[in-house]
Amino acid sequence: MSDSDESGGESDFYALPGDLMMWILIISELLVFGAGLLAFMAMRVTDPAGFTAAQGHLNATAAGINTVVLVTSGWLAALALKASEAGQVARVRLLLAAAASLGMLFLWIKGMEYAGKAAEGINFETHTFFTFYFLLTGFHALHVLAGIVILALVGWKASPRNLEVGTAFWHMVDLVWVLLFPIIYLLR
């Protein structure tokens, strides 16, 4: 995937695209979600039948659509970064607006999903599965919300550097979802 020279040593430490602090945040977030997902998988070993039964209440198709929505949004954000490097500010803003709109669509679908659970009387304490389901997807949804705000901010101050930092956060949200979606919704 890459044709750049490999350079070892300390220079690589500062070579990460964007801001080092954003990467510290991204790594921390990935560790948290990673630990949460592994804890979920471990708890699932103790009660596979109960987890499968609980998972039957989820709508995998809606979540699948949400996956496509989010990776498409990530793609638009990546295009926005390219456009900003080319200095096309209007195009940057258009692409970011589209990316953020898809983020809102994601949240709307997610909201419908939560409303459905509430209507069924399902909450945090219904089953261990739902404790993790609400915790992990809820934390993730909060990050989507934060990401939309960040995209709006970097769209306002649309320098290439800001875009690199802001879109990195958005891609992290994407990355978490592509791991969370199959583990929570699909495995049975």
Partner: peptide
């Protein structure tokens, strides 16, 4: 299913997040 997720995660990391430019990371 997990293998597909693995590939997807690699694509997000290397293409979207641009890690392919920093091989060590």
């Amino acid at each position: 299913i997990l293998a597909l997720a693995w590939v997807k995660a690699q694509i997000v990391l290397n293409v979207y997040l641009g890690l392919s430019q920093v091989p060590a990371w």
